[in-house]
């Protein structure tokens, strides 16, 4: 098997995640889809690392994870406070930024 398949898989997962972001309205699920996209990227990075025979790709994937962790912490805090004020986790309810 050609290891390029890992990249195809990553692309597929990324696209699925992105579509999920567009389709789902529950903020938590939406957020999970973002995580899926990040993971797809990580997979691609790891495959690149193997491809080029150095560890920089893995290091970047590592940083991605750290940043994703920070993002999840803040994002979930936002969702919780949003739910507290609006009693809803739907992103469509937070549509004040329109005319």
């Amino acid at each position: 098997m050609n290891p390029v398949n890992y990249l195809y898989l990553a692309a597929l997962l990324f696209t699925i995640g992105a579509s999920g972001v567009l389709i789902r309205r529950n903020a938590i699920v939406l957020f999970m889809c973002v995580e899926l996209m990040l993971n797809a990227c990580n997979l691609a990075l790891v495959a690149f690392s193997r491809m080029h025979g150095n560890l920089d790709g893995q290091i970047i994937a590592f940083f991605t994870m750290v940043v994703a962790a920070a993002e999840v912490v803040v994002g979930l805090a936002i969702i919780v406070s949003l739910f507290r004020t609006r009693h809803s986790a739907s992103v469509d309810d937070a549509s004040l930024m329109k005319l």
Binding site: Y6, V46, A47, R50, Q58, A61
Partner: peptide
Amino acid sequence: LAVFYLANGAYFLGVVQ
């Protein structure tokens, strides 16, 4: 994905994942 990381030689990342 963690398993794939391991398979690609990213042992540390796999465990962290």
